[in-house]
Amino acid sequence: MKGDWNVSKGKLKQQYAQLTDDDLVYTEGAADDLVGRLQDKLGKSKREIVKLLNDL
């Protein structure tokens, strides 16, 4: 993930109020876990989630 993850988390939480801090836990090398959690929570495809994260 590029940039400051804390800023990106804030943007996501503003845009999607249903996301919690636990949903947005990111550890280096575990991006697939994050994408999977966001897919489940937001009901979007993997492609949509990856685009959303890249556009932050």
Results as ranks from 00 to 15, higher is better:
residue 23 D to K: 13
residue 10 G to Q: 11
residue 1 M to K: 02
residue 21 D to S: 09
residue 30 A to W: 12
residue 4 D to S: 14
residue 53 L to G: 03
residue 49 I to G: 01
residue 35 V to D: 07
residue 16 Y to L: 05
residue 43 G to C: 03
residue 45 S to V: 04
residue 6 N to T: 11
residue 23 D to I: 11
residue 3 G to V: 05
residue 45 S to N: 04
residue 16 Y to E: 05
residue 14 Q to K: 14
residue 12 L to P: 13
residue 3 G to E: 08
residue 15 Q to M: 12
residue 19 L to E: 04
residue 41 K to N: 07
residue 47 R to K: 15
residue 6 N to F: 01
residue 6 N to M: 08
residue 6 N to P: 00
residue 29 G to A: 12
residue 19 L to T: 06
residue 53 L to M: 10
residue 9 K to C: 14
residue 54 N to F: 10
residue 10 G to I: 03
residue 13 K to D: 10
residue 9 K to Y: 04
residue 56 L to S: 02
residue 32 D to A: 09
residue 42 L to H: 11
residue 37 R to Y: 00
residue 52 L to T: 04
residue 15 Q to W: 03
residue 9 K to E: 09
residue 47 R to G: 12
residue 21 D to T: 05
residue 33 D to A: 11
residue 18 Q to L: 15
residue 42 L to S: 05
residue 26 Y to C: 04
residue 22 D to R: 09
residue 15 Q to F: 01
residue 25 V to P: 05
residue 23 D to N: 11
residue 37 R to D: 09
residue 9 K to A: 13
residue 50 V to W: 01
residue 31 A to M: 06
residue 31 A to V: 05
residue 26 Y to M: 09
residue 53 L to S: 02
residue 38 L to C: 01
residue 52 L to K: 03
residue 8 S to F: 10
residue 41 K to R: 14
residue 1 M to V: 13
residue 30 A to V: 07
residue 56 L to R: 00
residue 50 V to Q: 11
residue 38 L to S: 03
residue 19 L to G: 04
residue 49 I to V: 08
residue 35 V to E: 01
residue 12 L to R: 13
residue 35 V to L: 02
residue 3 G to P: 01
residue 30 A to R: 15
residue 30 A to M: 12
residue 49 I to R: 00
residue 53 L to T: 01
residue 24 L to V: 08
residue 23 D to W: 10
residue 50 V to E: 14
residue 30 A to E: 15
residue 48 E to Y: 02
residue 29 G to M: 12
residue 34 L to F: 02
residue 49 I to D: 02
residue 5 W to N: 03
residue 51 K to N: 15
residue 53 L to C: 11
residue 46 K to R: 14
residue 36 G to T: 05
residue 20 T to Q: 07
residue 45 S to Y: 07
residue 30 A to I: 03
residue 37 R to H: 06
residue 52 L to G: 01
residue 47 R to T: 13
residue 24 L to I: 02
residue 33 D to H: 07
residue 7 V to R: 05
residue 9 K to I: 15
residue 32 D to K: 06
residue 48 E to D: 15
residue 11 K to L: 13
residue 24 L to K: 03
residue 46 K to I: 00
residue 18 Q to R: 14
residue 49 I to F: 08
residue 32 D to E: 14
residue 24 L to H: 07
residue 51 K to T: 13
residue 14 Q to P: 00
residue 14 Q to I: 06
residue 36 G to R: 06
residue 29 G to H: 12
residue 36 G to N: 13
residue 11 K to T: 04
residue 49 I to T: 02
residue 32 D to V: 09
residue 5 W to M: 07
residue 49 I to M: 09
residue 28 E to C: 02
residue 35 V to P: 04
residue 54 N to E: 14
residue 55 D to Y: 00
residue 31 A to Q: 10
residue 4 D to C: 10
residue 9 K to R: 14
residue 6 N to G: 08
residue 36 G to C: 00
residue 47 R to L: 04
residue 55 D to N: 07
